[in-house]
């Protein structure tokens, strides 16, 4: 079921780098800019019927990257996808009502402004971005959803 709409507030304390890092550490599935931009795209288009190529074109990343991000989101229970391999296009439905929904909404709030998005991208840069425990968190997510 689609998530409740968010009214984005002005920039505030939440955009501070340390806050961002803590948030990313909790979310864990947002590993890089592609993940972030894909999440933003899916938030604006919570129910999409598109091919991976089309999503890649809309978001502006290589198809391989997009495919990886989609798989991560699906495994984390953030995204649902129709199972119909005969169709090139799949229906994707963003689900932000899970346990981590509040954190995703906070991240989306931050990413809705230019400074906020830059702070997040900075925090995601290689060498800084991978919050400690990311891999462990991802394993936990997979285990909890019975997919790992």
């Amino acid at each position: 079921m689609p998530s409740e709409r968010i009214i984005f507030p002005p920039i505030n304390e939440r955009d501070r780098p340390e806050e961002i890092k803590l948030l990313l550490a909790r979310i864990s599935v947002i590993r890089n800019g592609c993940d972030l931009d894909l999440l933003l795209f899916l938030y604006r288009h919570p129910r999409t019927l598109l091919t991976n190529e089309q999503i890649a074109a809309f978001v502006g990343y290589e198809m391989k990257q997009i495919a990886q991000s989609l798989e991560i989101f699906i495994e984390a229970g953030l995204l649902a996808r129709t199972q119909n391999p005969t169709h090139a296009a799949r229906m994707y439905l963003l689900e932000l009502n899970g346990p981590a929904g509040g954190d995703y909404k906070k991240l989306l709030e931050s990413a809705s402004t230019r400074p906020g998005r830059r702070s997040i991208l900075e925090a995601l840069r290689p060498g800084r971005s991978a919050p400690e425990g990311h891999a462990q968190n991802l394993r936990l997510v997979k285990r909890a959803s019975g997919r790992g």
């Binding site: 689609p2 709409r5 129910r47 999409t48 019927l49 598109l50 091919t51 296009a89 229906m91």
Partner: peptide, 30 residues
């Protein structure tokens, strides 16, 4: 948004190419 939450409305974003193919198939996802 409220109607979507109540399961009475769906807003689907797609492309014309996809829709054209979808409507030509008996098992259209849409």
């Amino acid at each position: 948004a409220k109607l979507e939450q109540q399961g009475r409305l769906k807003i689907v974003f797609t492309t014309r190419d996809v829709l054209r193919q979808e409507l030509q198939q008996a098992d259209s996802v849409l």
